[in-house]
Write a protein that binds this DNA or RNA. Structure first.
Length: 460
RNA sequence: UCCCCGGUAGCUCAACGGCAGAGCGGGUGGCUGUUAACCACUAGGUUGGCGGUUCGAAUCCGUCCCGGGGAGCCA
């Protein structure tokens, strides 16, 4: 089947003969003796308009070609006399490839609500909005690889199955090969019977793996699915999501902040230039302020704000917050939003958090009170990046582990990297879905994932 | 897990204690180089489930289910 993608056809510089387009009908407008058929094949947002007159082969099939039907049209690509499109396809032959019953096909020739489309997630990429979304998702994934490859980072495939329950980032999904019938008996017996002979989980983070490889290959990143069994039922959480986690050896928290800022600016610029047509849909129909917000990311350096100063700003704001503000307490959503949306009105990197509210592996600062952690806060999303310089001193790390009541044995390999050729290193995690929400103005994570998995929802 | 809002035709919604409606979509016919075309006709409902109050419930109450928003936790 020789065919031309619609994106290529609409981009033609001259008329063409014997062009075949295959795709799904978006709408059909009948006139006496001929019809306009709009076809989309997913290659771009735009449809191609085919003009089918009654002489064309297969004209009789046209009555069965409604919204959603798969069709093949062969003809001449000619300049369109009508308004709204440069090129159109003068059909010589039309064929119905796969019909769609108009009474039961769920998608109509009009706008649907996001809630409704979630119920037909298998069909929603056929809509303009979700087609655009998933093209942008694909493009930005490639942009991430481009960015890191261009800077000499290696892509590490961190494991998805893990035997350590100490990745330290929330509730984990347990993985077992035992059937429900076999899963009876004492814990030790079950472990012995199970596939790995020990407890197994789905990863919640690739960070620990990335640290190991940073301390070998230098600069690396992981980018893949991660899983959290939190009962978080919100528009910003999913049980399965993609996370990007770069890690750099011989790097400190400032290098880390620079990398995060460069990355966000690169991806923003990339989206605006390489996904312009698809992004425009979101700017027009989803978030009127989208382009302004994206330009705001590019325009100026991000604010770099020590946690202690953030607390001062919040205390002096005169704002009534639901949750208390004080040194040593974590910043709540409302606080982060105030700082980035109201006070600075641009991305803010908050760093040097009190050690009590951060993970054990973050590097203890000389003040003995704070750790070299950094969060990038952006308007509308809140925290998009969270990272730190890692504790590279064996004794300090061991003390932190025991302070927090964690078992040293579990971490033997993690500690080994501090035992043998330890170096300062730093990295961060970026939620890919939250990045997509930032880039498109979409406010629900379920609408930036092809088939979202959330608490109590495992459909498709 | 907690708080708030909602569930009525395929979709988006109206009716808010007294005969269940509109727009869009579907079907049929017409018309036009049309642009989410246009015009006419037409089909389509156990008002989320169960129970209660009432002469009478889509409407009030209870409960369960589902959807949305917010919070916590985080990415």
């Amino acid at each position: 089947m020789k065919r031309i993608r619609i994106a290529a056809a609409l981009d033609a510089s001259a008329p063409m003969d014997a062009v075949t387009v295959m795709g799904w009908a978006r709408t059909r407008r009948d006139a006496k003796g001929f019809s306009f058929l709009e076809i989309n094949d997913g290659s771009c947002l735009a449809n191609i308009q085919a003009v089918v007159d009654e002489q064309a082969e297969g004209y009789a099939d046209l009555k069965d070609i409604g919204v959603g039907a798969a069709v093949s049209v062969t003809g001449k690509l000619v300049a369109s006399p009508g308004k709204g499109q440069k090129w159109e396809l003068q059909a010589e032959r039309v064929a119905l490839v796969g019909g769609a019953d108009q009474e039961t096909y769920p998608l109509q020739k009009k706008r649907h609500s996001d809630e409704f489309l979630r119920g037909v997630a298998h069909l929603r990429p056929r809509t303009n909005k979700y087609g655009a979304m998933f093209r942008i998702r694909s493009e930005l994934a490639f942009a991430i690889h481009n960015f890191f490859r261009g800077r000499g980072f290696y892509y590490v495939h961190s494991p998805i199955l893990t035997g350590s329950d100490c990745e330290g980032a929330g509730e984990m999904f347990r993985v077992t090969s035992l059937s429900l019938d076999e899963a009876q008996g004492a814990k030790e017996e079950l472990r012995a019977k199970d596939f790995f002979g020990k407890d197994a989980y789905l990863t919640v983070s690739g960070q620990l793996s990335a640290e190991m490889f940073a301390c070998s290959l230098g600069n690396v990143y992981t980018f893949g699915p991660t899983f959290r069994a939190e009962h978080s039922d919100t528009s910003r959480h999913a049980a399965e999501f993609w996370m990007l986690e770069p890690e750099m050896a011989f790097a400190d928290i400032t290098d880390n902040m620079n990398l995060a800022e460069d990355l966000l600016k690169y991806l923003t610029e990339f989206a605006m230039t390489s996904c312009a047509a698809d992004l425009d849909l979101f700017a027009r129909f989803v978030d009127k302020e989208l382009m302004g917000n994206l330009e705001n990311i590019l325009r100026e350096p991000f604010v770099r704000l020590p946690y202690a100063e953030a607390v001062d700003i919040l205390k002096k704001s005169g704002k009534k917050f639901e949750y208390p503000v004080d040194f040593g307490l974590d910043l709540q959503s409302e606080h982060e939003r105030y700082i980035t949306e109201e006070h600075f009105k641009k991305p803010v990197i908050v760093y040097d958090y009190p050690k009590g509210i951060k993970a054990f592996y973050m590097r203890l600062n000389d003040d003995n009170e704070t750790v070299a952690a950094m969060d990038v806060l952006v308007p509308r999303i809140g925290e998009i990046v969270g990272g730190s310089q890692r504790e590279e001193r064996l004794d300090v790390l061991e003390t932190r582990i025991s302070e927090l009541g964690l078992g040293k044995e579990e971490y033997w390999w993690y500690l080994d990297i501090r035992r043998f050729g330890s170096v300062p290193h730093a990295g961060f995690g970026l939620g890919f879905e939250r990045l997509l929400m930032l880039m498109t103005g979409v406010t629900n994570i379920r609408d930036v994932i092809p088939f979202p998995r959330t608490y109590r929802h495992l459909e498709f």
